[in-house]
Amino acid sequence: MAPIELFIELTLMPLIAFIVGMMMVLMMRRIAARIQRRIGPPFFQPLYDIVKLHGKRTQVSHGLIHDIGIVMAMGGYIAAETLLPVPGMNGIAEKGGLITLLYLMMIPSLGLALGVGQCANPNGSIGIARALTAMLAYDIPLVIVIFGVAYAAGTTNLVEIIATQQAGGFATWGVVEMPLLAIAGLIAMHASLGKQPFEIYIAPAEIATGPMVEMSGKYLGGLFVMQCFQLYTTSVLYVSLFLGGGTTWFDFLIKSFLVLAIPVSIAYLFPRYRTEDLLRLMWKWPVILGLIGLAFVM
């Protein structure tokens, strides 16, 4: 591939991810509003929020690590997007693969954790401790799912996983071939989004939004950007693993939005679990489903 072409791809992939991510945030808020019989925010609301937050005049920093943490939180996702193939663009997906992508997605969390740590606010620290605990909860079923898919496909190369599904048509989609893994994956994905009922580390009424408690202005803005990327990455990864990726941008986006709509619609019907209940839940049902699904694949 010509270097210039690759460069354009590497620039476009995070940019598109950000824009689609903002639309996903909008969808999430609209769905929440509709479930609560409200109208919801206007179309450009996510953009307004981000621009406003970055346009604050005075902002509070608790030190260099606080700043760097936010940079890492945004930068890690920007990098991760280039490993996630989209229709017509593969970026450097072939140089990393699925496991690398999963680990690269932990970098933003690590950055956030460091940044929050330096804020010297116990609410934030409790939030991070809970977020890491939640990660321990949902990553176990997620890993079973990832293992199953990669083993069935015989590769960790996402481009190939998608190509195999597209070549065989609907009957070879992950969701048809491995329905149990797909369900377990959906639950794990829901938990990884940190939405209700798995919202233990935000918990506004309890620990004052946990990690975000000391974030003002561009710090909070960075986290809003990160949320856009997070929604996009999670849903696109699910689409790539189970729904055959996308042949065109149209069906790709429809699939991504639909996948995201499922956990989001469930989320706003529930209050919050306690930490140990979340662990118990995630280590029981999705793991059982995943292991049975895995047995079918092996």
């Binding site: 590497l10 995070p14 939180a73 930068g75 890690g76 920007i78 990098a79 450097i92 690269l104 950007v225």
Partner: peptide, 27 residues
């Protein structure tokens, strides 16, 4: 090399977004 290159490029873009957004004050 690619993974780390892209990661640091990502950090670079993140830093540009972050540091272009007005001053902050250490408290």
């Amino acid at each position: 090399i690619w993974v780390i290159g892209v990661l640091f490029a990502g950090f670079g873009i993140g830093a540009v977004i972050f540091y272009s957004a007005g001053p902050s004050k250490r408290v």
